[in-house]
């Protein structure tokens, strides 16, 4: 699967091929989400008759991942900036956040946001999906913070000195010089976190979000056929993570301006 890039015409440049891979994998994900009920419905019992439920569960899983992933990216950047800030209270807040969400089980966080948070702040009475998305976003954000912080610290000091000595303000130095380089360094661990997020979104089942894992458990309970149910679910996760990895590999190549990748 790593060789998808070599499927493109040899005359295309590295960037064109990477872009083509990104677009193709993105389109395949959308097509799978849209159309997967169709091929699944031809599968034998107990999958065929429940194809629609599997398709809907998969859509919920991907929605959870995308929403929590985007939130986690923002939170990660904010928390990383907080952690390297020169203002002590910002550092404390960011460190406390990362400490709590990396130091407690995700399952507990999901349960806490859904059941306990409304007791503390009545306004935050969320539906199952929103509570799961919030907990997942907060969790992945804490892990992203460390990945992004490591990337920011890995940008050589000389780069910042060069930017500042050209008269670039601190804002432009960050936006034009530090962040693009840090992002590239952080990309592999960030992708790792997103792939984990896709799989961890299955924990949303404990508060009753009907994502693909819960779908398979329910069908399994009704049909007493665990093997086909769980194999199907496993295949759906594998397909999703594989497509996501293809996109991220392509993104890495797209931004590989230093020719470090073979």
């Amino acid at each position: 699967m790593q060789r998808v890039l070599s499927l493109w015409p040899a005359s295309w440049g590295r960037q064109q091929r990477s872009t083509a891979t990104m677009i193709t994998a993105g389109v395949v994900i959308l097509l799978v989400l849209w159309l997967m009920a169709k091929p699944l419905s031809y599968a034998p019992e107990p999958i065929g008759p429940n194809a629609q439920a599997f398709a809907e569960g998969t859509r919920v899983t991907v929605e959870l991942t995308v929403i929590a992933g985007v939130a986690g990216l923002f939170l990660g950047v904010l928390a990383a900036l907080g952690k390297i800030s020169r203002v002590p209270p910002l550092r404390w807040v960011a460190s406390l956040y990362v400490w709590i969400f990396r130091g407690t089980p995700l399952l507990l966080q999901v349960l806490f946001v859904f059941f306990a948070l409304p007791e503390i702040i009545p306004k935050l009475k969320l539906d199952e999906f929103s509570a799961a998305a919030l907990a997942l976003g907060l969790n992945v954000g804490a892990y992203n913070a460390e990945a992004i912080r490591a990337g920011l610290l890995a940008v050589p000091k000389g780069q910042i000195e060069a930017a500042r000595s050209l008269g670039l303000s601190r804002w432009y130095t960050f936006v034009d010089i530090t962040f693009p380089q840090a992002f590239k360094i952080s990309l592999p661990p960030l992708v790792n976190n997103i792939v984990s997020l896709l799989k961890d979104s299955s924990l949303a089942y404990v508060i009753g979000v009907v994502e693909v894992s819960l779908v398979s458990t329910r069908i399994q309970a009704a049909t007493f056929q665990p093997v086909p149910c769980y194999v199907t679910t496993g295949c759906i996760y594998l397909l999703m993570t594989t497509l996501m990895t293809q996109i991220s590999n392509a993104v890495e190549r797209r931004f590989d301006h230093e020719g470090k990748l073979a």
């Binding site: 780069q159 060069a162 050209l166 008269g167 670039l168 380089q181 590239k184 230093e258």
Partner: peptide, 26 residues
């Protein structure tokens, strides 16, 4: 202006963008 021992060009930008960045921003 400053020229460094280690050059410190911006590796993610082309030669042209390295030169135009500061005039455009500043």
């Amino acid at each position: 202006g400053m020229v460094f021992q280690q050059f410190n060009l911006f590796p993610h930008l082309t030669v042209l963008d390295n030169v135009t960045l500061a005039p455009r921003r500043v």
